[in-house]
Write a protein that binds this DNA or RNA. Sequence first.
RNA 1: GCCUUCUUAGCUCAGUUGGUUAGAGCAGUAGACUGUUAAUCUAUUGGUCCUAGGUUCGAGUCCUAGAGAAGGCGCCA
Length: 477
Amino acid sequence: MKGRTKIFNLNTKDAGNKIVVMGWVRTFRKSKNVSFVSLNDGSTINSLQVVLDMNKFDEKIIDNINTGSSLRVEGELVKSSGKNQKYELLGDNIVILGKSNPDTYPIQPKKHSFEFLREVAHLRPRTNTFSSIFRIRHACTFAIHKFFNDRGFVNIHTPIITSSDAEGAGEMFKVTSLDLDNISGKMVDYSKDFFSKPVSLTVSGQLNAELGALALSDVYTFGPTFRAENSNTSKHLAEFWMIEPEMAFYDIDDNMDLAEEMLKYIIKYVLDNCNSDLIFLENLELDSERNLPQIKRNENPLIYRLKQVVNNKFIRVRYDEAFKILSNSKQNKKGKFKFKIDEWGIDFQSEHERYLVEKHFKNPVIVCDYPKKIKAFYMRSNDDGRTVAAMDVLFPAVGEIIGGSQREERLDMLERRMQEMNVSKKELSWYLDTRRFGTVKHSGFGLGLERLVQFITGMKNIRDVIPFPRTPGSCNY
RNA sequence: GCCUUCUUAGCUCAGUUGGUUAGAGCAGUAGACUGUUAAUCUAUUGGUCCUAGGUUCGAGUCCUAGAGAAGGCGCCA
């Protein structure tokens, strides 16, 4: 690979240099004497224009330059006389690395629907939109690791296969090595299975992360998460990536501070490092909204929305206040909510969350101190006896992006809650040990990576921010 | 899981109250063109109208079932 230059490294300063680039043809504009190839290697959204003197090249080479084919081009980088680029490559020597039959190659130099591109998910990274999204997704991933590393957090690899079915975060996928094609009507004998007991794919690394926090102080997990829920929405995947920090000695306020700081850090990192991708996605969104009625459009363009999040303090409200705001809202009094806000203790529906974020505050909102009966067993009971120290970070468009809490560190309280909610103390005795031996107050939260990438890229469907989406009835590639 | 909508050329879509031989743009192919920017211009190929039944003299259009997709809701990240 010696001598090859990636396109994102090119610069007008390199004009006059002999270089070698490799990439895939986006478009080929052919005419008798001079032709133009847009070559993209995925290192940047910007394709490099290769200029070909048609008299210099064999017909065999020219005929195989098609949309999708891969080339090695050697030539001199020069200042461009065209308007849309500052520099271009005068092609001297071209090698066709891989042919592409234009008759059957599905990606055309034109606008495709996201639905169609989902059906060719193996090739969609070759489009501007998806290469931008995946570069931004990578930037988010990198920023997350950097954020935590800079603050002395330890990355814990929590297990993907778990024997605990008590996490309570949703339906689980079973993992087995039993011959499923050959199971009789009898009860399954799990003692014959690989782990000698029923096991599943993880729905959350939190309980394991807590074990790490109660030894290493600050830890985080960042791994795949699996939910077998039959959710058919633009915000749910059966396989997604979740970031779960867990911090010893943090109370719920420290927890909220960290969540806000982290989200701002990641978004700022993307703003600072993925500018051309964001500009592309912003224009794509403006373009797609051109024909929509005003109410269906975003109030502000993408980059403005991102800067707004970075530059404004998140609004923090307790459930009680949020409940009052919602129940006194015109929307509620006029019966415009599908689910009326009437009795204290109900869980908010997404229409209520959107009202708070998009109509009332027009800002990201953190709601905390939820009624205990709608939250999980491990959340710390507040002194009022009816709420727990839980918090949800609500974002415009994507809704709940983070869910977290201060954990119940008092053994007797935790055991009482487990009893009430029918969680097996025996199965989670390892978890309870942290409360038996040197318990401390601690907190944590879960961030859905795809929902964050959705917000940052403005993509409407979560299936378009993960390379290979898994959803009910769909597991391809 | 529930509700609604959609499925017509490789892609994006049009197709009138059910009426003859199903259309357009783009892509592809052939050609033209000295600098293009999803190049342009000329010509042209391309159809199991999602599948299976049914109603009708006649179905892309109506009815039933199924498959797939999208949007909304619930569950959540």
